[in-house]
């Protein structure tokens, strides 16, 4: 019988405990709160309000 040389694809080999840092998530949520998009004459301006 032929040998199977196939390897488990990479995503399955990735450690299940790998998660993004809490501070990255917090940054994204804060960024979202701070970002406001202003519509003006069909133009969109982004403003980051701190």
């Amino acid at each position: 019988m032929a040998n199977l040389y196939s390897e488990t694809s990479r995503p399955e080999r990735v450690n299940k405990n790998l998660v993004p840092k809490e501070e990255t998530i917090r940054f994204l949520l804060d960024y979202s709160k701070a970002l406001s998009v202003i519509d003006y004459n069909k133009l969109k301006f982004e403003a980051l309000l701190n």
Binding site: R10, P11, V14, K16, L18, V19, I25, L28, L29
Partner: peptide, 19 residues
């Protein structure tokens, strides 16, 4: 947004890490 990130963060992060 918080709910969306919480729901998908692990899967997306692992997808990026796998590359």
């Amino acid at each position: 947004l918080c709910e969306l990130i919480t729901r998908h963060k692990d899967r997306i992060f692992r997808f990026i890490y796998s590359k």
